[in-house]
Design a protein around this nucleic acid. Structure first.
Length: 200
DNA sequence: CCTGCGATCGTCT
DNA sequence: GACGATCGCAGGA
């Protein structure tokens, strides 16, 4: 397992980065111990022209979405419904406010027992809160992304994003998850679409 | 100051 | 499928 420190890797747009992040590892230092989690479900948020995105032109969340304007590789964490947090990996070069929402991860440490299905649950389980907002994950020693040391051959499903309202953009298939992985937050057999297979 | 609301989740019907 | 918990922020008065 090797930490991803390439700015290039994170400079892809959110759509590309979301596919690249599936199967990668989130490493998180908790109580001095490094735990690892495999990313199994993500959503792409495409920035200024994506009506479902916090950084969309007409959105009113300016200050909240400022971390998205950093170059790829930073974190974007925010409080939702006053209770949960959501964790994003910022994508694209500086000034282009795109990000990838991490919606579910699979714990790689057998003894880990907290729920990690869904963006709120995984943030709670990994101790991700507003203190981890706007950190450079290329440099951080608290949270970072790693390559997997095993070649995964997963079938990837795409679907509509969850709970993003009814805009034109909400109908786009910008959610991606690993087929039949039991940590995926929820599935809709009727609407899900086969996307591609044998991703490394 | 006051109001409305959200990239959620567990529980209940 | 519907609902409430709970809170920071933007917008309006």
């Amino acid at each position: 397992m090797s930490k991803i420190v390439s700015i290039d890797f994170f400079s892809s747009d959110a759509l590309e980065l979301s596919k690249k992040l599936l199967g990668k590892i989130i490493a998180r230092k908790i109580n001095g111990k490094i735990l690892r989690f495999r990313i199994v479900e993500v959503e792409a948020y495409l920035g200024l022209n994506d009506e479902a995105c916090h950084s969309h032109k007409k959105n009113r969340q300016r200050s909240k979405s400022l971390p998205m304007y950093n170059r790829g590789g930073f974190s974007y964490v925010y409080l939702i419904y006053g209770i949960y947090h959501c964790f994003n990996v910022v994508a694209a070069p500086k000034g282009d406010p795109q990000s990838v929402l991490i919606r579910a991860v699979e714990p790689l440490d057998k003894e880990f027992e907290l729920k990690t299905n869904g963006p709120g649950n995984l943030c709670k389980a990994l101790g991700i809160n507003i203190n981890l907002n706007n950190v450079d994950m290329i440099k951080s020693e608290e949270i970072w992304i790693e390559n997997s040391d095993t070649a995964d051959e997963d079938v990837i499903i795409s679907s509509k994003r969850v709970n993003v309202g009814n805009s034109e953009d909400s109908h786009k298939f910008l959610r991606f998850y690993i087929y039949s992985n039991k940590f995926v937050s929820k599935i809709d057999k009727k609407r899900e679409k086969y996307f591609l297979s044998n991703i490394i």
